[in-house]
């Protein structure tokens, strides 16, 4: 039982970080971005490439403390975050921006669906479809709670790292949105883009910031997924439905909602395994989604539909 809860929080962290991007893009650019999952995949794979590059130049490094990875992975994560943000900006420049100027939200969704397929297949073309790993080290899970208390709890240091860095990311983002001018301007733009413009806010700049933040968090989420599971070209596609479910559950446009939504969807997925079997865990997100649409479509923290 405890173990399932812990697993749920770990998968929930990945979902939460991805869902923040979905909800930010939705609230600023006003469309459900079906290509967001691919940012997770690209983030994960670009980090893998960077990791290989680093190891090729500086040689393999000792793992950091109890973790399965050394400093190269952290550097690779940073490099990949920059590259993934550049990718997101490029897609926006070539595709979404053109459509924004004369299209409507629905053509944007359509285009994002197409962009998702192109990005995924391009990635598969480059990397192939065999699963990859950041590290082949086998980690020993630490027993936190003995087996006789609610089934006990074992957790690997990498999983603790995921939980910790997720918390740090969310807290930093919160600070950014409530304390900085750019963050407040983002909230203002999400509330009312036209008023933001007449207030002097350069909405194009806000849009760029949105993509960068979304892509950076997607990279972190993608790397976490690669670290705790494995790297596959379908990594992002498989997470897309949970991301949407989390964003809607939290109330679309609400960053904190996305975090809570992500954790709930992660927990639901994990706890559903003994009930419906591991093969259907992905459908749990769908059940959560339909339930929230029927019961409270504005989500837990939603302000408006």
């Amino acid at each position: 039982m405890l173990q399932l809860v812990a697993d749920g929080f770990i998968i929930g962290s990945v979902i939460a970080l991805g869902a923040i991007g979905v909800t930010l893009v939705y609230s600023i650019l006003r469309f459900a971005n079906f290509a967001h999952g691919e940012l997770l995949t690209w983030g994960a794979y670009l980090a893998w490439t960077a990791l290989i590059g680093i190891v090729a130049v500086w040689g393999p490094a000792e793992p950091l403390g109890p973790f399965s990875f050394g400093w190269p992975l952290l550097v690779a994560l940073a490099i990949s975050a920059v590259a993934t943000a550049a990718l997101a900006l490029l897609v926006d420049r070539l595709l979404f921006r053109q459509l924004r100027q004369h299209g409507n939200a629905i053509t944007l969704i359509m285009a994002s669906f197409g962009a998702a397929l192109v990005l995924r297949n391009l990635l598969q073309f480059i990397y192939g479809s065999i699963p990859e790993y950041y590290s082949r080290e086998i980690q020993v899970a630490i027993r936190l709670i003995p087996r006789d208390v609610l089934g006990g709890l074992r957790i690997t240091p990498d999983q603790l790292f995921v939980l910790g860095l997720t918390a740090v990311s969310v807290v930093s983002l919160h600070g950014f949105l409530t304390r900085t001018t750019l963050g407040k301007a983002m909230r203002a733009t999400s509330n009312n883009p036209q008023l933001a413009r007449v207030t002097g806010i350069d909405v194009d700049q806000i849009i760029r910031a949105t993509w960068i933040i979304g892509a950076v968090l997607a990279t972190v989420a993608g790397v976490f997924s690669g670290l705790t599971v494995q790297l596959r070209p379908q990594l992002g596609l498989d997470l897309l439905l949970p991301l949407f479910a989390a964003a809607i559950l939290g109330g679309i446009g609400s960053v904190y909602g996305a975090v809570v939504g992500g954790l709930i969807v992660g927990l639901a997925e994990s706890l559903s395994v003994p009930l419906v079997g591991a093969e259907y865990r992905a459908a749990t997100a769908f059940a959560v989604l339909i339930a929230i649409l029927l019961i409270r479509p504005t989500g837990l923290f939603g302000e408006r539909t």
Partner: peptide, 25 residues
């Protein structure tokens, strides 16, 4: 019934969910 009362994005997401779930089934 679940998605058509809401904004179009929700229908897109819900139908995407249908396809994913049916694929699993």
């Amino acid at each position: 019934i679940a998605a058509l009362r809401l904004r179009h994005d929700y229908l897109a997401i819900a139908t995407f969910g249908v396809a994913v779930t049916l694929q699993l089934v």
